[in-house]
């Protein structure tokens, strides 16, 4: 099975406090710790596990700039066979549809049977996988939390409300968006990353892929972010500002009053 995983490098929200820059038009990006989007890492692990069972290759692709290469190397250190960095100034400012358009062109030029994306990235859009499938006219399943390979098709489970699972059969080729918790992604050490440091990573541009710049990037985007802001708090919590001892005493009092001690 030839598997393509679409991945993205994002600021790691578990490592950073996200703050606004002074102009308010972006988040403060200096000193941010970046990593692979959490969902995408599960997708790469899933691809590796599928290939371990049925054979094949895993390619990880991202649309971005040279800074984004580090996540490709990281996923190659996990075991992905190839990394591809699709890069062109014309792609800057693409909305979800723009990204899906670029990826769809790339998929059509390759041998891929199965395309995986993460459910969502830092913008919570949860859109690129579904759009990509529709552009390719492939079947799609979102929120996938298990994959079994059958003959010419897959048996996949989707996560629905309340922790229940919806089991589906889906024909290949198809696109799946992968949910966190589907597997336990393997650990990657610095040593592993050094070992793949010299493997060349192709960087196809818009013209290499034959993408009309007018269909992607800022100009084609129909959805545009104007700014970032932190909404004024509603009522908000009463913040306990004392020393730790004082806070503990106060909290105990409050919790007891609310029936928290049984």
């Amino acid at each position: 099975m030839e598997i393509l995983v679409c991945a993205r490098r994002v600021p790691d929200t578990s490592e950073n406090e996200i703050e606004l820059n002074s102009a308010g038009n972006d988040i403060e990006r200096d000193d941010l710790v970046y990593s692979i989007n959490e969902w995408d890492n599960y997708a790469v692990e899933e691809a590796l596990q599928i290939v371990a069972r049925v054979g094949g290759n895993v390619t990880v692709v991202t649309v971005g700039g040279e800074d984004d290469e580090e996540i490709l190397r990281r996923e190659m250190a996990m075991g992905a066979n190839h990394g591809v960095l699709i890069s062109d100034d014309a792609f800057r400012g693409s909305d979800g549809r723009g990204l899906a358009t670029i990826l769809a062109v790339f998929v059509r030029k390759g041998p891929y049977d199965l395309i995986l994306t993460g459910v969502q990235a830092e913008d919570g859009g949860a859109q690129v996988g579904g759009m990509l499938a529709a552009l390719l006219d492939y079947p799609f399943a979102s929120l996938v939390n298990s994959v079994e390979v059958l003959d010419g098709k897959l048996k996949v489970s989707r996560e629905i409300a309340g922790g229940n699972k919806e089991i589906n059969e889906i024909d290949l080729p198809c696109v799946l968006s992968i949910q966190t918790g589907i597997n336990e992604p393997r650990y990657v050490g610095m040593r592993g990353i050094r070992q793949v440091a010299s493997i060349p990573i192709p960087t196809p541009s818009a013209s290499d892929l034959g993408i009309d710049p007018a269909t992607v990037g800022q100009a084609a985007a129909k959805v545009k972010r104007v700014d970032y802001f932190v909404p004024a708090l509603g009522k908000g919590a009463e913040m306990l500002q004392g020393s730790r001892e004082e806070n503990i005493d106060k909290l105990l009092e409050l919790v007891a009053a609310k029936g928290g001690l049984k």
Binding site: R97, Q127, V128, G130, M131, A133
Partner: peptide
């Protein structure tokens, strides 16, 4: 879980804008 499954692909097929 249903909207996430339906909406992005539908927007492509309708050739309309998707807002998530």
């Amino acid at each position: 879980h249903f909207g996430i499954d339906l909406a992005p692909g539908l927007s492509i097929k309708l050739n309309s804008t998707f807002v998530s």
